[in-house]
Amino acid sequence: MTRATLDRLVLGGFIVLAVLLYISTASYTGIAQKTSAVYVRFLAVSFGGLSTVQLLFSLRKTTHDEPLDLFGRAARFFGLVAGLVLFAVSFESLGFFIPAAIFIPAIAWMLGYRNPLVIGLSTGAVLLGVYLIFIRLLSVNLPSPAFF
């Protein structure tokens, strides 16, 4: 996939997003909401319009781009995306520390790092740092496990 193709795909997505945003304002009820709907429609039209113009410019350009090295290691890339999603989703039931203790070393391993001592130490340091700074010092309420 070239840079230009990726740009066009993203711009196409933007146009769809703008249309959906515009349509969503139909459900705004009441006088006050109708007023803010005008603003949201303005944003949708601006976004969709700018995306369309940029897409047209992009289609007119006929330069030959080098293929992007974006997914050179697709397994790693999508593995990381999946890991991030799982990490975020598990917050509700497992809290912060349990998923973090699994996610951090798993990601390091997936990215090709194999030194267990460094992985263990850096994971421990991150978790300890979060605990000391956020919970002990700043009294921030991090998500805790649902069963706790």
Partner: peptide, 9 residues
Amino acid sequence: MLEIAGQRH
């Protein structure tokens, strides 16, 4: 993060 993960080199 994603850029680092996706790069071949």
